[in-house]
Amino acid sequence: MRRESPMPVSCWCSSMSGEAGGGYRSATISVLVDNEAGVLARVIGLFSGRGYNIDSLTVAPVEDGGQRSRINIVTSGTQMVIEQIKAQLDRLVPVHRIADLTQLGPHIAREMALIKIVAPAGDKRAEALRLADAFRARVVDATTESFVFEMTGSTDKLDAFVALMRPLGLAEVSRTGVAAMARGPRAI
């Protein structure tokens, strides 16, 4: 199943020859940047201009005073392409630090979704509520013919829940994209 992306997705894969680049992998990369005008455009332009994939991208200020932002990018490619992506990000002037969380070891990656179900009273409504309970989704809005669930978790878990909701009246999904950091004491 193809999941919605929070940002425009560049769709052609890099022309890098597969043999030289090793196996294809997914990478979650965190980037600490100066929170200045255009910095997000720079990062996105880098991905679209060089034909890298963006599976998810989130950005928000993370420091007091809002001087720095953290961008979390989920991307995929051969090992060689992922190394390129990191090197290309690292040489952007406003970039302070980058961390390839996937490579550094165990990490936590979470996203939040709002999921709207339109289902008048009946079996589907009851089933949706039961599943929401099992997935620990919270009901944050309800009318006689609709619900909005809020759910936080891994991308896979959200994907699975959204798939289950589809036949039960799924009307709309809004996802944040991934926020991530390494487990243990290591900081970016």
Binding site: E19, A20, M80, E83, Q84, A87, Q88, D90, R91
Partner: peptide
């Protein structure tokens, strides 16, 4: 042609830009 470029050599690459290294040729 990249696949046929200097096939039998060990390569050392000096560059001030890390993104130039291992970009086309490992």
């Amino acid at each position: 042609k990249l696949a046929a470029f200097s096939p039998g050599s060990r390569k050392i690459h000096v560059d001030i830009d890390p993104s130039s290294i291992n970009k086309n040729v490992p």
